[in-house]
Amino acid sequence: MPGQPEKHMNKPGKNNKTRTVYGPVATVFASVNTGSWRILRPGPDHSRCAGCGQCETFCPTGVIEIIDDPAKEGGRGKVVEIDWAYCKGCGICADVCPKKCIRMVEEKKGNENEERN
């Protein structure tokens, strides 16, 4: 996902040098991998998804993107893509989905769900 800084945050400088700064600041995010917090995960039913984007708009962590699916509706279809590294499993996407095609499923069973990424 764009805008997620984890990749940069932990990158050491060329010479592995450090410097002292004053005041509240974080350059390493210990709890950045919020995907590990999930108990439930959203399981979208892509066949019923209209690609309206409500879930994308309301997602508090900004991990949902509506993408084109060339395999759906002759190439004009849309599906939701979720960044599992950061999805906290809060369920807001399931609540706001106007077609009720996102179902929250148990994380440990998540792999059984239809999954595209």
Partner: peptide
């Protein structure tokens, strides 16, 4: 000289301490 905002070298400033 201390904290700064730079997309190439990100910092999270004023986090919960």
């Amino acid at each position: 000289k201390n904290l700064f905002l730079d997309p190439k070298d990100p910092m999270f400033i004023n986090n919960l301490t």
